[in-house]
Design a protein around this nucleic acid. Sequence first.
DNA 1: TAGTGGTCTAGACCACCGG
DNA 2: CGGTGGTCTAGACCACTAA
Lengths: 245, 245
Amino acid sequence: MKLSLDLDRSAPVPLYFQIARQIEAAIADGTLQPGTRLENELLLAEQLNLSRLTIRRAIQHLVDKGLLVRKRGVGTQVVHGQVKRAAKLTSLYDDLVKAGRTPSTKVLKLALEPAPPEAAAALGVPEGSNVLAIERLRGTQDGPLAILRNWLPEELAAFLTTEQLEQHGLYQLLRANGVHLRVASQQIGATPATTAESRLLDENRGAPLLTMTRTTFGDVGQAVEYAFDSYRASRYSYETTLVDR
Amino acid sequence: MKLSLDLDRSAPVPLYFQIARQIEAAIADGTLQPGTRLENELLLAEQLNLSRLTIRRAIQHLVDKGLLVRKRGVGTQVVHGQVKRAAKLTSLYDDLVKAGRTPSTKVLKLALEPAPPEAAAALGVPEGSNVLAIERLRGTQDGPLAILRNWLPEELAAFLTTEQLEQHGLYQLLRANGVHLRVASQQIGATPATTAESRLLDENRGAPLLTMTRTTFGDVGQAVEYAFDSYRASRYSYETTLVDR
DNA sequence: TAGTGGTCTAGACCACCGG
DNA sequence: CGGTGGTCTAGACCACTAA
């Protein structure tokens, strides 16, 4: 199989990324079938007039995404069977929009409060000092989906209003105000719904909820958010891709 | 802060990995405090007599692990607050051993059976063709922990016996027989325990179980395993790290 | 043994950030 | 503006795999 890849060296998009995107598209549309071996790196580099390292980076990008596998002495092949998209640092809001659904948000709480112990520890502030506490009910046209509870450093309160939060995702608002998220540490579990949760989510008391406890860090390593989310397990599951390296 | 890093150029360990390991250790033992800025890449490269690219790879490795964050024009810093270990392609068995617990395994089923539809689709075999079906109850000294259900291609049946499975992890056995796992696509959800599950796991009927549905691929892209695991949510949660790149 | 990916070098130019 | 990381080149040698 011969791929036709083209490059725009004047574009602001890195060359390795242009390549990766085109190979990914070829896999998605079936041009590159599962099990197909890519041409070797030297050949690809020569054909595209790129250095081998740039080709390698493009391939590495797709290996990290779980679309390709490499084996020394053998080659690079397309993974059999489609891989689910990997977990990324995106918000539920963005995910719902991308899936063509219409997210709705009801702000249940937006207040400066003394930080509960776990939140204080995660954010690196003294226990009991004031932090911004947010509680939201996220739903779609099909009904409620999750209770989202967030605690943020006090200084981020400035640009977060109920109106903003009901029209946009939290991460989107943070990004728009120059807060860039880089790393999150997350723990996923399950609990039975409490009476209060069951009412909000339209489930029976004791119904299983998928819970995510998360601390998110910004681009200079500071903690930006501590979150405790509860999802209706009947309507939501978490997809991820693991790669061995 | 001056780090003392040393290299062994005759060792079979890649240089970038030697560097990464030492920086990671320095973070772990507190030599590099959260928020500390690393020296810039040019300087590090010069001091260690390495090319900048090698240094970059070492740093990139730790960024991927969630230990460092980079920002153009600013520098590289240690993330505040400890990050949980990222989800890797390891087995529950290995994880338990590493955590100092003693895993026990009871094989409930080990048989060649017609593949159920989802398993057939995941493994890429015709529906109803024979596959190896395994069902195990995994526990620790503290009681049962999870029901592990696996379906594997028929040809892997050769070296999997009840005795082997009760003494070792499945992934461990696969690896020992030349089957190398590379990528897994996983879906995490929650369900109420059925009567049968509640009996095996010593929970009440309807208690929340954390479920993982997983397809794992080997190093030439072939599907090696389809799994459906149910964990007691009261005793197990799934930890992961997300990195934006 | 031939072919593949894995690592490494010594340069270069650019984009972004902060003062 | 100076300093940082981001991208890229054109080579080189090595380790592993399969025939």
